[in-house]
């Protein structure tokens, strides 16, 4: 998605190395996706549903 839009940045965060972020975003399982620090998606999601949630997070 970051490649498809100049407005999107995407980071993979190694949970074990950043316990402060794990606490901040209440990560209890992986993968967990956090969009703009507030919208949360748990688990792996099919592409179409994932893109929808990302786009709708700023709609």
């Amino acid at each position: 998605m970051a490649l498809a839009s100049p407005h999107v940045t995407a980071a993979a965060v190694a949970a074990v190395e950043y316990p402060d972020l794990v606490r901040q975003y209440r990560v209890t399982g992986v993968p967990k996706t956090v969009i703009n620090g507030r919208v949360e998606i748990l688990g792996a999601v099919p592409e179409a549903a994932f893109v929808s949630q990302v786009v709708e997070s700023v709609a």
């Binding site: 998605m1 839009s5 407005h7 940045t9 965060v13 949970a15 956090v34 969009i35």
Partner: peptide
């Protein structure tokens, strides 16, 4: 801007 963080192990 959309900032996506994916927490992984």
């Amino acid at each position: 801007p959309i900032d996506i963080q994916v927490f992984v192990t």
